[in-house]
Nucleic acid binder design. Sequence first.
DNA 1: TTAATTTATGCAATCGTTTTCAGGTTAGGG
DNA 2: CCCTAACCTGAAAACGATTGCATAAATTAA
Lengths: 331, 331
Amino acid sequence: MEAVTLKDIAKALNLSTSTVSRALRDSYEINENTKKLVAEYAQKVNYRPNPIALSLKENKSRAIGVIVPEIANNFFSQAINGIEDEAYSRGYHVVICQSHESLEREKENLRHLFERRVDGILISLSGNTTDIVHILEYSESNFAVVFFDRVPDSDRFHKVVADNFLGAFAATEYLIKQGKKRIAHITSPLTLSITKERLEGYKKALEKHGIAVDNQLIKYCGFDPEEAKAAVNEIIDYQNPDAFFTCSDRLALHCYEAFQNRKNELSNETQFFGFTNLNVSHLFSPKLSTVVQPAYEMGTRAAKILLDQLESKRKVKDFEKIVLETYLKIS
Amino acid sequence: MEAVTLKDIAKALNLSTSTVSRALRDSYEINENTKKLVAEYAQKVNYRPNPIALSLKENKSRAIGVIVPEIANNFFSQAINGIEDEAYSRGYHVVICQSHESLEREKENLRHLFERRVDGILISLSGNTTDIVHILEYSESNFAVVFFDRVPDSDRFHKVVADNFLGAFAATEYLIKQGKKRIAHITSPLTLSITKERLEGYKKALEKHGIAVDNQLIKYCGFDPEEAKAAVNEIIDYQNPDAFFTCSDRLALHCYEAFQNRKNELSNETQFFGFTNLNVSHLFSPKLSTVVQPAYEMGTRAAKILLDQLESKRKVKDFEKIVLETYLKIS
DNA sequence: TTAATTTATGCAATCGTTTTCAGGTTAGGG
DNA sequence: CCCTAACCTGAAAACGATTGCATAAATTAA
């Protein structure tokens, strides 16, 4: 099972490496008999071109990088499944990095991937990333970047996102139609694109149904579990809401800890809605309905755009923004 | 931000590439002044050696492969975190593949990683893998393999596992001490190492406390959700147990679907135990206690063994089996 | 003075592949 | 019999880095 090289084949067949190389790539310059001979022998010894040598020659690695805040999160792991399926089917490697919601880690990941010469990256920004100068810096080389889910304002990049506005709007409207009037909204820091869009959906639904937006019912939480618990406690103390709408996998979980602590103060009628891809939300108590994002598809679409760009020769000038629909999963 | 090569530096400084190379590696042959000059210039232009060129030269990629059944599973994603931390800190890349519990996919992943010239792999076997000839084949090259969690019988490999026997024993004993007498055990196919060990722990605990093992209360389920549901239904029909002990993240979830369907036939006293790293088990209804494996540590330990082996020159002859302790998380 | 040694540097091969350029053979047309 | 075209094939350079060997200059020893 030692690796066979072109040179080995050439020696065995008494040809030059160039002839063997051409024969295998089915060049018109090579005699049919020679081609057949080479092809058969290569097959027999199970020849595989050395991808590292190819990378060196072509100055491409046929690997792409992915930077996400966390793997241990259903949304991101599903998105990664999509990315991998698309990439592998096109002969690319995928290198996954986690920023753990830290800008510093995000920068390190970026540097690491760049030095490793990945051909491009897919990234969903960390919760502490407020600008993207560290990314612009790299994208000036011929290093393709596609954003998904958590995207920057800049219109100099391709982006793939869920329809956060409509998802939040639909969830809020559902709660209103269930007769809820005091709907709390617990969400991520406003630096994230998804936060703003979901907040907008929440507000618009309230407005549409003539319910005043109460800023006391809206809380922005960072990534410390205690923040989420404090937010829940403050809201319950302020005015016991009849519904909670939490805006990420993570927040839903942290808030649930708090709900359990103050269980007896919550009415049985209180409803819970999340913006998550948790595949176990229907097993929770109290029940958790969710806005589900097409995570897998988001992954395949983002990967497809990146790979298409890598494989096209000309520089892209107009950048796409793809918006995918969400759906409600009522528990 | 274009990549600088040794040649660029050599040209700029009017030296040969060999001198530059040696200067950067602080060779004793090079004049101190020259070294300083080169080091400063390299720093200035932010020179980074091309890892692909190095790989080609050294016939190593400084990348390792990981094959797991699923990423979207808390146990595996935590293990991957451990693997990545260890690998990145030592300058290695990690390429993650999923077998999706299919032997075919596992073989494909293996071939893919091998062709991509990863230096070694970490693998947790798919649920449909009954022998490891496909792995032996590769390990004959100088291609290091370390197993974790789901390991084969062979003693020709390094392995890192949880103490499945003791974990299952402790969980079963806990249930018995809670007064449970009819404890159902729903588990994976017997082909998996973890299945046998956990089953053994379950049986030994029953024996110790003088409870007869009832084979009707033991079910082996493949990876189709319907199998798990059928198993639950059969057990309830046969004899309503006072406790269920399910043996994986996946099975716990599938079984819960069935529990919810037959909720009113189950007593409030029925207890549920899983062998899982679900980080949300305490939010479930009915409550789910779990045997938790040190997934992160399993990842770091396995990666450490693999990398140590890769970096040591001599062939390893005696293979380690590391067994890590589990703990109970009671909900 | 000459030979030997040290010091500092460069040349060239190597890893595996592709590709440009050039060379050689054969056949056919004049 | 010569010229050209068509058809095959091989040598060599290139990608970026490392390293054994050669070489030049400078220093020391005899």
